[in-house]
Write a protein that binds this DNA or RNA. Structure first.
Lengths: 136, 136
DNA sequence: CTGTATCCGTCCCGATACTG
DNA sequence: CAGTATCGGGACGGATACAG
């Protein structure tokens, strides 16, 4: 079912693939896509997104939104009012991407306790060997 | 079946979730998981992995493998021979994670031309405005 | 072969100030 | 409200040397 095309090699050396992987395999990108998908009207304003994704800075929010727009995953609706209003909305492509992303998120939510246990177990056996993972 | 728990909020503020997202949403982690899944015998040696994932440094390979091991996604088989031999293999949990990952990879392979076109179109309309994306 | 240790440049990203 | 501009600390990650 998940068979890859016949020409696919075992090595992961496709440049375009890796280029887009950099976009998709990005924490803020994923969180924003999920947040936009969950939006009531499928749209969210800049400030709403900032609230909905705790910890993201204004700079990162702007940058990530621009990159997602560049990749055709979302559209920016600009209303020249005063004060100005901007609404972000996933494109068809972006909503489409939500299928695999959603399954990934689902998987994480279902398995994170298992992983947390694995981490604790591992750390117990490798005491004081930092792995660079921040505690919350 | 895929219903989320009732307490699930629209905001993405779950710490454990984000912690593991940092692991999964990592370029090298994803590439290594895919590579291990594609491995003939489901196992690969350190040097094989280094060849199969072009561009990864020895340091990043070691670090990423350790983190994946810590999260219980792969096991490290150490053979105390001379010279030493080490084989890496996905755990059940790791293979399980390949389902959503595989779909994501599949999606990227199917849609990257669309995205490339979107990028070119966007860049045409926003000339000289760098987006921090490296060319290949 | 499979790492570990160290150095060090790059750039990510948060904080702050300012604009339309 | 929704950004842009700028600065700076710190983490990321490559290169190299060395160890078991």
């Amino acid at each position: 079912m998940t068979n890859l095309p016949a020409h696919h090699s075992n090595d992961v050396d496709d440049c375009a693939f890796r280029s887009f992987l950099d976009r998709v395999a990005d924490k803020w990108s994923l969180l924003l896509i999920v947040t936009l998908e969950n939006a009531p009207k499928q749209r969210r304003r800049f400030s709403e997104l900032k609230k909905s994704v705790p910890g993201i800075s204004q700079r990162m929010l702007t940058t990530t939104l621009r990159n997602l727009e560049r990749d055709g995953l979302l559209v920016r609706h600009f209303f020249p009012e005063i004060p100005p209003r901007v609404e972000y909305e996933l494109t068809t492509l972006g909503k489409n991407l939500m299928c695999p992303i959603g399954e990934l998120v689902q998987w994480i939510r279902q398995n994170w306790t298992t992983i947390t246990n694995a981490r604790n177990e591992f750390d117990k056996n490798n005491m004081a060997k930092s792995t660079g993972v921040k505690e919350c």
